[in-house]
Design a protein around this nucleic acid. Structure first.
Lengths: 194, 194
DNA sequence: ATTGACCCATAAACTAGTTTAAGAAATCAG
DNA sequence: CTGATTTCTTAAACTAGTTTATGGGTCAAT
């Protein structure tokens, strides 16, 4: 049953009844995404909350000079969505792309709202999930205003050890807000220190 | 009645019954905070969700060299808390301080949990509030990896026009992740351009 | 009125990070 | 297996932002 990873994820927060699981099962869809395939592009409306079962997605924005900047990565058991575009049903500025062959579970807006109404504990679960994500982002903001690029890189590695080896350094540099050349220098220095 | 600004705030999301308002009223407390007074310091447990009725608070972290960095400001009708410290009942690393004489409404952990249980729509309201805050932070992360200090300053001014004039530039520089000297230069350039 | 704390500005020397360019290494489609 | 594309590294010249120091203005407290 393809909803299983999602149900397991929800049950790390609160237990669910069989009927509730069935309701969820009816309202989600499963999708495979190829490496480099996009789930969302700038100016499109974000129609889904996306849960990563396997693989890695990146969300990125494009600046005034056309350069891409990685806002975040989502790997196994993480949610990803352009939240403001999703709720407002308005075009957003985010892009979502697979960096590996990826499998996701998606919920559309009307289905998510239906589930919120019929399974109120989902309000609580998504409140908690969003709070957790908020704390992560807040730590990242603090880092970005208080730390050097090397410190930020080490923090990234400690926080997402698997991504450090799964992702090309260009993607990591984009996430850290530095050039791949400078990341290369940082890595060289770190190896030298050891 | 001192709970009024808070109830008004909640009712911008969903309507409330009289009994619900009463329940909220019984579980909150009102407090005045002097300019420069702290509501929270590093290593303390964050015991409250704090709602700003009047004034401005800043939340800041301290880096390895003892320097302060502003993570965010909270002014009228905004919530502020060290979320992870609050929920985990564990010492955190955030500091909260008033930058003006400030009036706040506070909810303690047990009272907030009581309200979540007895007024389920508060789960939904705080889910939405946290999502809104999340989107703000995400925009800020994007800015920090994609924009120059001048662009970040102009964005800050456009987003929080009142804070631009209410706060000393040192506080704004700390929020932008630059030195006050450099902000001074940016401001000079902007005036010259006009 | 006067002190002291705080805030802002200016300028010179410095450092962290970018840009450009060019070559080596790894990865991938056919 | 091979050519093509992407990725990583190195280095030199450059730019954005910091540091240090100095001086002036404002405002609350004595």
């Amino acid at each position: 049953m393809q909803a299983k990873p999602l149900i397991q994820h929800f049950e790390t927060y609160l237990p669910f009844e069989v009927e509730e699981k069935q309701l969820i099962h009816e309202r989600i869809s499963f999708r495979k995404v190829k490496r480099r395939e996009h789930l969302l592009r700038t100016v499109e409306i974000c129609r889904h909350y996306t849960f990563v079962v396997k693989g890695v997605l990146r969300m990125y924005g494009i600046d005034g000079n056309g350069k891409e900047h990685n806002i975040l990565f989502a790997s196994e058991n993480e949610w990803l969505s352009d939240i403001s575009s999703f709720h407002a049903t308005q075009p957003g500025e985010s892009n979502i792309q697979a960096l590996e062959p990826t499998e996701v579970i998606q919920i559309e807006q009307q289905d998510l709202y239906y589930l919120y109404i019929n399974i109120p504990k989902l309000d609580r679960i998504f409140k908690v999930i969003t709070e957790e994500k908020y704390v992560e982002l807040q730590n990242r903001v603090f880092q970005s205003i208080s730390s050097t690029a090397q410190e930020r890189y080490l923090y990234f590695l400690s926080k997402y050890p698997s991504l450090g080896s799964r992702l090309p350094n260009t993607q990591i540099a984009s996430y850290l807000g530095i050039t791949p050349e400078f990341l290369s220098m940082i890595r060289k220095e770190l190896v030298a220190k050891k």
